[in-house]
Simulated scan of single mutants.
Amino acid sequence: MRLIAAFAATAAVALLAPGAAAASSSPVHVATEHGRFTAYAPGAHAVTYRPDLVPAGARAHVFSLSASHAGTTTMLVVTGLRPGRAYGAHAHAQPCDATGDAAGPHFQHAPDPVKPSVDPAYANPRNEIWLDFSTDRLGSGFARSAVDWTFADRRAKSVVIHETHTHTDAGHAGTAGARLACLDVDF
């Protein structure tokens, strides 16, 4: 939590520095969300689908800052996950629901016309928000994504934690195994 607060303060200072506001043609958009993962229930906004890998009670915090002159920077901090393990995470197009599939595909700035998207020209960390991380011995992890675009009419609606780090090879680009947990985020 302190890490996100420190990032927020630093990012805000950079974005609001003299001259930054003049360079911006649109307002700064901040999205922040935190949640404690639980089994799915109607209205839940932090859901674990695999409590063996994302235990009930584990937490996630997302902070995202967008401005036309700076792009979008997103941070993910997790606690209470399995120690010493690699996870993937991405911004997804739909909110969380009863199954991980309900969150839809990864949000892509330039949408791939072919679904599912596994073409590295579209499924990459410049066109999507990738937040892969590894947990430390206490089960905490941190990830940061910076892209040069901002959200317009279409916005991501959740962050999904996946089973593995994200693949980048053709035919598998953007895949990261099973969907383990989901946090609704109002990007």
Score class of each variant (00 low, 15 high):
Leu138Phe: 13
Gly88Pro: 06
His172Gly: 00
Arg82Cys: 02
Arg82Lys: 14
Gly80Ser: 06
Phe7Ser: 13
Ala170Ser: 15
Gln94Lys: 15
Arg154Cys: 00
Leu65Asn: 10
Leu3Ala: 15
Gly43Val: 03
Ala178Gln: 13
Pro95Leu: 10
Thr135Arg: 03
Ala6Gly: 04
Arg85Ser: 06
His106Phe: 09
His69Asn: 15
Arg144Trp: 00
Ala152Arg: 13
Pro55Leu: 07
Tyr87Pro: 03
Cys96Phe: 06
His165Cys: 00
Thr175Trp: 00
Ser24Leu: 11
His45Phe: 08
Ile161Ser: 03
Pro120Arg: 06
Val77Arg: 12
Ala173Ile: 03
Ala58Phe: 08
Pro120Gln: 05
Pro55Arg: 09
Gly171Asp: 10
Val54Gln: 01
Phe142His: 11
Ala156Asn: 06
Arg50Met: 05
Arg137Ser: 15
Ala103Lys: 03
Val47Gln: 03
Thr74Phe: 03
Ala110Glu: 14
Gly171Leu: 06
Gly141Val: 02
Pro95Cys: 02
His90Leu: 02
Asp101Asn: 13
Glu33Gly: 00
Asp186Val: 10
Ala31Phe: 05
Thr48Phe: 05
Gly141Ser: 10
Ala103Met: 04
Ala5Met: 09
Thr150Cys: 11
Gly43Ala: 10
Asp119Val: 02
Gly43Ser: 10
Asn127Phe: 07
Ala110Phe: 14
Arg50Pro: 00
Asp148Arg: 06
Gly171Ser: 09
Ala181Lys: 01
Thr164Glu: 08
Ala123Thr: 08
Thr79Ser: 15
Ala67Pro: 07
Gly177His: 01
Val62Gly: 11
Tyr40Gln: 04
Ile129Val: 15
Ala93Cys: 00
His61Gln: 12
Thr99Tyr: 07
Arg154Glu: 11
Arg144Ser: 11
Arg154Val: 07
Gly139Arg: 03
Ile129Cys: 02
Thr73Ile: 13
Ala121Pro: 05
Val160Arg: 01
Ser117Asp: 09
Ala103Arg: 02
Ala123Tyr: 12
Ser145Ala: 15
Ile129Glu: 01
Ala170Tyr: 12
Ala91Cys: 07
Ser68Asn: 15
Pro105Ser: 12
Pro18Met: 06
Val159Ile: 13
Ala56Gly: 02
Gly19Phe: 09
Pro27Glu: 13
Val13Asp: 14
Ala70Phe: 15
Pro95Gln: 11
Thr38Val: 14
Ala6Tyr: 02
Gly35Tyr: 01
Ala21Val: 14
Pro95Asn: 10
Tyr49Gly: 07
Arg50Trp: 09
Ser26Tyr: 11
